[in-house]
Design a protein around this nucleic acid. Structure first.
Lengths: 200, 200
DNA sequence: CATTTTCTGGACTTGCCGGTCCATTTTTGG
DNA sequence: CCAAAAATGGACCGGCAAGTCCAGAAAATG
């Protein structure tokens, strides 16, 4: 896996990943040909298969891994500091802005959607991302409970699960309608519910 | 579009659609070859292109249309009678059961996911389904407002949008994790929020 | 500076699968 | 019962894109 890689080599490799990611974001998974990646990154087939012996599958997986990390990075540091209602609000706004900016194609489409590769590796990338995401939200809920802003009888895990579902569905609908209405409504409803639950 | 179709013809045509739908549910969009459909339905290429001159695209669209209708039919009559809290609960249970039963592949994957055909026809199938779905939920909310079970200041449209997002996200997560936790949590959170809002 | 490894380019192969074509059989309708 | 239309079967074609191969350039190594 970690072959001897000269600086030039690593540069090319990451150029390929970045280019493939961009291509993927613009055109969607099944519209992207290896040839497109080559054209955009100025590389040859030899190079592609040199750095990704597993071919398209391996390249797609590398891109997905890269983009999955990015999803959470884009939410930081807000996602890690859900310690007050304004902080939650700021995170909410950031999420919506982030997905509005992102085009019509989910870069994780390669894995997330029905088309998603069902290989164990692909699954673990997705479940890993979702798990970390959900945990971060649950941590935020628990912190709010520790400060008394959210009622202690709330199940943090379930709340996080519900919020994550709302986000995923909101993004899915955004991808289809081009509007952020659903994402916003889902987040607002969830946050209102948590807020309201604080005062019995 | 509506060619002369003998009884035998219509039978074959619908056999093809049904078979393709089943194949799609079991194996997912990009794993299904025309050949698979032929094998399952006992038909030949000639027949496929006889009934679907537009080829795979047209067949997929027909299947999607068929399945989209089914999504709402499966929720009836419950979805049309959201007139009391027990009715909402029954609908919630039905939804979860329905999606638990359905395998790992969304029959609408052909359209819903990132892989989704971006043709106008495909978009209209999806947006049509989502729109009708959202409207039905909103109607339910409004009815509950008319009986005083939900506070009048609730925006029925936004509530419906949030609920639909939760459902979609829940199903997406179900497809990935095999668990209905997220779907259940999202629905429960939303319904609790609506219930709670009734008593200021 | 020699030689060994890595990197690069691109021509070529391969297999798959959607789509075409037409000959044959079955059904329709007068 | 006989045209005409519809339905069926399956051989064949063609293109596309993934993947292979190898020869040559550029770096590392000592």
């Amino acid at each position: 896996m970690a072959q001897a890689l000269t600086p030039k080599g690593t540069a090319t490799r990451s150029r390929i990943v970045a280019g493939a990611a961009a291509e993927l974001r613009e055109r969607g998974v099944d519209e992207v040909r290896l040839e497109d990646v080559m054209a955009r990154t100025g590389t040859s087939k030899g190079q592609l298969f040199h750095y990704f012996p597993g071919g398209k599958e391996e390249l797609l997986l590398a891109v997905a891994q890269h983009e999955a990390d990015q999803v959470l990075v884009d939410q930081q540091p807000l996602l890690g500091e859900l310690t007050s209602w304004p902080a939650w609000q700021a995170w909410r706004d950031r999420l919506i802005a982030r997905y509005r900016e992102q085009g019509q194609h989910c870069p994780l489409g390669a894995l997330l959607g029905p088309t998603g590769r069902r290989t164990p590796a692909a699954r673990s990338v997705v479940t890993g991302l979702l798990g970390r995401w959900e945990n971060a939200i649950a941590d935020g809920v628990r912190h709010m409970q520790s400060t008394g802003d959210i009622a202690p009888e709330v199940d943090a895990g379930r709340a996080a699960a519900a919020i994550l579902a709302g986000i995923q569905g909101g993004v899915l609908l955004l991808l289809h309608t081009g509007r952020t209405d659903h994402l916003a409504a889902a987040l607002d409803l969830a946050l209102d519910a948590l807020r309201g639950g604080a005062r019995p």
